[in-house]
Structure formats: structure tokens, C-alpha cells
Amino acid sequence: MNKKAVLIIRTVSVEKLSKALDLAGERWPDHPLAVASSINRLNELSDEPRIDHLYGIETGTGGFEVPLVLDETFEAIVFPVGNAHGSGYGNVFWACRSLSAKSLYISSYCQDLRVIGAFRLKLKCLIEKFLEDILTVIGAIGARRLIRQFDL
């Protein structure tokens, strides 16, 4: 029977992703590895022999804006993050909210794999979204000032 794939979301540079691929390969040696990445980086990843499937993600000027929808159920989904707890990746988690997997992992600095519950992940997204909403007001005031200051 075909084993379910492990999906890694490319939220870090291709160099750091390589470390995450090593970690996933060690953890799930018998499972195929899939990577979801913004379309403009697919070329760079197409030569990577450790990747069995590649999925393109539509991104906008705000990064991961479009929800990622895949029919497959994955063994695990891994979110490599460039910091300790995944702060600032709320938009990525949010874009992946409809994906289905047995378990979810965060890979801090691409150096470890830590299980994270779906509820906690959702909570992270909601907190970041709440902060974003509040700070949008400050952003709007700042934008108006800049436009006025530089007569844009």
C-alpha cells in the first residue's frame, strides 16, 4: 500500500529547506516527501532528488494570501520556521488551515521537529490576526503621514 506523503511548506529559504528535508527524511524514512512552495521558486526545487511531489502556491504581495487546497491526506505537515516558536507565520498557518494531516509539526530554525496541535496553531493565527487588525489602524495613520510628507 502506498504510504502517505509528508508535506513540507516552504516558508524559509531553499538552503534552510534542505535541512528540513533531512529532518523529515530521517523521521519518516519510508514516506514520500512533498513540498509546497510559491510558484516562483518551483524551478529551484525541481532538481532536488529528495522531493517526490511539488505543489505550487499562489502568493500575493502579502506572501501566503490564498488558501492552499489539496485533496490528499498527509502523514504529517511540517512548517519550517526561521525562529523559535513560529511567530510571524500566522498567514502561512492560516493559508494551510484546510489541509488534512495526521499530525502537524513546527521545525524551529529547521533544526528540530516539534508536534503542534491544530488548536494551538489556530490560536497562533487568531492572535496574529487580532494584532494585525489593531496595527492596521496605526499603519493607516503612518501611511497618510508619509503620503502627505512626501506629497505622493
Binding site: T61, G62, G88, E128, L131, E132, L135, T136, I138, G139, A140, G142, A143, L146, I147
Partner: peptide, 11 residues
């Protein structure tokens, strides 16, 4: 665009 970018700077 500026509103979003300045929001992100603070965020």
C-alpha cells in the same frame, strides 16, 4: 500598500 507595510513593521 503603505498601510499594510507599516502595519507589518509594527507587527
Amino acid at each position: 500598500l503603505l498601510t499594510g507595510f507599516l502595519r507589518d513593521i509594527w507587527l
